[in-house]
């Protein structure tokens, strides 16, 4: 074991400090040290998107980020999406459209979709599918996920012009 490193970061708008080994991924740090287990691990090599978090101004698979790299960064996880007890429109749309079955991929999809809607307020189906192709879902066939994201886009940004 190597010497642990102290990391100061901001998670879901709150300052957070944790101690980790350099080999520990950001995903491990979030789940096992900070206790935010909403972010999931599905593959450990960046191909399923279940561990997606927002890191600074972009989304990443947190299994492919070292915890020590989060020093000074701002991170948003699925736990930070809702405003208090009010669900984010994407969360509500996923429930209204039955866009989850087992739910293990859902946190990653929500974070990825949130970033999509910030970049494209009214994404086309093609844009939505392209953006979300780093997120695997094995239950839904993606149909209801795509519909939920597009419904949330209208909820958040109004009908497309």
């Amino acid at each position: 074991m190597s010497v642990k490193v102290q990391v100061q970061t901001t998670i879901n708008n709150e300052p957070v400090e944790f101690l980790c080994e350099p080999r520990q991924s950001l995903l491990e740090c979030l789940r096992d040290i900070v206790g935010l287990t909403g972010t999931k691990e599905g593959c450990g090599d960046g191909n399923c998107g279940s561990c997606t978090v927002k890191l600074g101004d972009r989304i990443v698979t947190s299994c492919l980020v070292l915890g020590v790299e989060a020093a000074g960064e701002s991170i948003t996880t699925v736990e930070g999406l809702a405003h208090g007890s009010t669900l984010h429109p994407l969360q509500k749309a996923f429930l209204d459209h039955a866009a989850l079955q087992c739910g293990i991929c859902t946190p990653g999809f929500l974070i990825a979709a949130d970033a999509l809607l910030q970049k494209h307020p009214h994404p086309t189906e093609e844009q939505t599918r392209f953006w979300l192709s780093n997120n695997l879902c094995r239950c839904t066939g993606y149909d209801k996920i795509v519909r939920a994201v597009q419904a949330a886009a209208i909820e958040i940004n109004g009908a497309a012009q």
Partner: peptide
């Protein structure tokens, strides 16, 4: 290269 999240890194 990769997908959206991979391109973030």
């Amino acid at each position: 290269i990769g997908g959206t999240q991979i391109q973030g890194r």
